[in-house]
Write a protein that binds this DNA or RNA. Structure first.
Lengths: 340, 340
DNA sequence: GTGAAAGCGCTAACAG
DNA sequence: CTGTTAGCGCTTTCAC
């Protein structure tokens, strides 16, 4: 592949002059500029950004680390960051952690070694702290999205899980539900803890007793164990509604319930966080608290750029979006309990 | 950030020795190795892959270019490539083209400038030829996924759109449908042409007349124009079923039909390519031909690695997966036509 | 306006 | 087993 010297030789100038016309800085006589441009075209010259990055100490690259890109919530975040990155002529490298801190660590190490300019991360959980500290040590700026990490004070963009959960719970109360179970994601994530908090607060505010057997911890990304649903429906009294941690858990809960011959929403109502975007337009099913995922991504990226560009910022910024409740078929009026 | 020389100095060896222990090649005495490791840890040394890439002429980086990562079909492809890349210690850079050839071109140029080792691309359309030729000129290997491009003979992984469409059409015939419309994606894509071909062949084989007014060209990724659906339902006779190009078009078609007070499947049956993965488990709605998207991604990546590694290959390889038909609620028996 | 020199951080090739 | 030399392709700095 031709390099800057080849171009320089053909244009009969020094490589410095070529560099100047590439970057459009410094003075170059109009005529020599033309010669250089001509030579570049003739040789099909493409500047090598590796070399440039090496000397400039800047790679124009961001990393986006998410639990699993297949969840439409994270997909949409990805699209938001990619669009914003693109606008600023940045590239983005994608990593899936499956909420595994070690996988996350590998990606963080990769970030260090390829000298990314910044990282947008949906942290795997509270143990991500160590990984994030590493970024800090090496002065690589990052923005947390969707989740906070105990002991980490950085820029964050997320939704209000407590509020969203309470609104969802109120919706269920209004439908007459009293026996409401919850399946959370891993409680090492702040969203799971917040949603559990919203759940307990909502119960308390409505004067409904908290029952430990109604609470199950699962995972936002891993397949839901059949046992979890089985235990829930075996409780006495059987819950007439389940708050599920997110769209994935919701989908699997519904599937497992139906496999066990419970209908949704007739026997059990389901509500959850985060939507299945496209299909919900056509065939609305799940009652959800949605969050502006695209904005999570684009805003986080914008904030990251401000840090990268060294714009003075007074302390960590925390952007919290309010979720929006969308009521659909998966939640219905509470009925007297019958076992199928 | 500390570099290899700092480590060398502290360990009292040359930087070459440090390089050897980093890369685990060449002979290094156990004792000096230990000293070097110790120094690396002490200094928090992280090798700079930019510098390494520059001299090795290899970046350990792939690019994945798709129309829109938000479509679960492409998302799943992305996850497949990311997983496979990771296994080989490669990173992947993501680009969305929105099926715009110029956006695609920008990404291809980016690929050249950062010297990616290979590209996995779902081409925007037939005009992608120019872009792909560029990659070839610069000897950057690539694999086409999902779509072929006229005049390009490279490795391809895709599904059999003709077959899938015919099977979907047969399903509709079996339900008694005779008046079946089609909404394709852009006909610059091979999948759209194949699906249209499958449609016409299926009609012919069943001795059903082809009607030009039943054929509409739309887009796989852009919002569907209300007008398209309106024109279709205004035909005489009105179609009782619509084959839609993909999941996105299907979702929008259903939405627009319902807005115009047609019910699905009672008034109009809908079938399409590609699924909405998770939610379909819980609330099966769309009758679809699904394709193994994850394998598209992982297999294409594997093939790419074979080329990158210089494993001798006799000519371009073409992997064609058979789609699987999943029959669900969106398609039902044909009924006498009534206008709502 | 333009160029020469030095160096970003690393490794290939050879020498010992 | 270890080190020296040269250079990957670019930009920064300074000189003219």
């Amino acid at each position: 592949m031709t390099n800057i010297h080849d171009v320089a030789k053909l244009a009969q100038v020094s490589s410095m002059t070529v560099s100047r016309v590439i970057n459009g800085n410094g003075y170059v006589k109009e005529q020599t500029k033309k010669r250089v441009l001509q030579a570049m075209k003739e040789l099909n010259y493409v500047p090598n950004s590796l070399a440039r990055s090496l000397v400039r100490q800047k790679t124009q690259t961001l990393a986006l680390i998410v639990p699993d890109i297949r969840n439409p919530f994270f997909t949409t975040i990805a699209r938001g960051t990619e669009d914003m990155a693109r606008k600023q002529n940045y590239r983005v490298i994608l990593g899936n952690t499956d909420e595994n801190v070690n996988k996350e660590l590998e990606y963080i190490e990769m970030c260090l070694s390829i000298r990314v300019d910044g990282v947008i991360v949906v942290p795997a959980g509270n143990e991500s702290k160590r990984n994030l500290k590493m970024l800090s040590e090496f002065k690589i700026p990052y923005v947390l999205v969707d989740r906070e990490v105990a002991g980490i004070h950085s820029d964050v963009v997320r939704g209000d899980s407590v509020l969203g959960t309470k609104q969802l719970m109120d919706h269920l109360f209004n439908l007459g539900h009293q026996n409401i179970a919850i399946i959370t994601g891993s409680l090492t994530t702040s969203t799971s803890r917040d949603r559990l908090l919203g759940y307990t607060q909502a119960l308390k505010e409505s004067g409904i007793e908290f029952r430990a057997e109604y609470v199950k911890e699962a995972s936002y990304t891993k397949p839901l164990n059949n046992q979890v649903v089985h235990e829930l429906v075996s409780c006495t009294p059987r819950p007439t509604a389940i708050f599920t941690a997110n769209n994935f858990v919701a989908a699997q809960t519904v599937k497992l319930l139906r496999q066990q011959n419970f209908s949704v929403p007739e026997d059990v109502s389901i509500v959850s966080f985060d939507d299945f975007d496209q299909i919900s337009l056509a065939e609305p099913f799940l009652t959800v608290a949605t969050q502006p995922a695209y904005n999570f991504g684009s805003l986080a990226t914008q904030m990251l750029f401000e840090v990268i560009d060294g714009i003075p910022i007074s302390g960590p910024r925390k952007i919290i979006f309010q979720p929006e409740i969308i009521i659909r078929r998966s939640s219905g009026a509470a009925r007297p309990i019958s076992t199928p």
